[in-house]
Amino acid sequence: ARLPRSAVLKKILDSVKDLVKETNWDCNEEGMSMQALDTGRIVLVEVMLREAAFESYACEVPMTLGIDMEPFGKVLRCAGGDEKVTIKASRNDQDHIELVFENEEKERMSAFELKLMDIDGEHMAVPDAEWGAEISMPSSEFKKIVMDLAEIGSDLTIAVSKLGVTFTAQGNNCKGSMVLQPSTAVDKKSEQVAISFTEPLEMTFAAPYMKMITKAAALSSTVTLSLDEACPICVRYEMEDNAGHIKYYLAPKED
């Protein structure tokens, strides 16, 4: 599997490493994907890197690669963001993978081996949901709202109604809320706020977890929040050019 830029892998690692220390990557002809729970079992994260994300991709037999994020991060730090990355896994030797970074300008090439782990894989079935509300907005804006309100209080409430979408946090000595309304005057789709819902709803989530989830803003200019009563929120970042996505399901806080 050959990626045109290592930056994509670096960003994916940054987006999951606070939640997941080790995970199985499933490789098949469609691409590379992973699903993992954090140790508290409060967030489920899914990453899909489709074949389209790669400059070249070949997977003759489906394989599972058990990756320890810490050494993987150390290896990735050795790659320049615009260097090409080739990941090689051999079906005859499933003990490790090889990573080759190529800097075409400098005619430099570096090679690394990463030992694979035998991880007890657990996979959760995510039902196809009819969401009660969907909000799409610039990922940078969502990140700023979450980062700011997480300083105010540890509970982040998201309410969707005819007024728009309201994010609220309450702390011991302060409270803050931010309201977004659907944008009408913005031309660029990536800068638009779009809100759809069937019934008004209000749900509360742990702000520290939501903060970790906003790290994926580096992977996509837009984010989609899908909510339904008594269901984890789905926070989805679609990468450009059908390259894949990262999705987080965060369990709500309830009475």
């Binding site: 079992r41 079935a125 399901y249 309830e254």
Partner: peptide, 14 residues
């Protein structure tokens, strides 16, 4: 006060 629910409260293992 609110209780933090778990993913297991909503999704089942495959």
């Amino acid at each position: 006060t609110l209780r933090q629910s778990r993913i297991d409260d909503f999704f089942r293992p495959t």
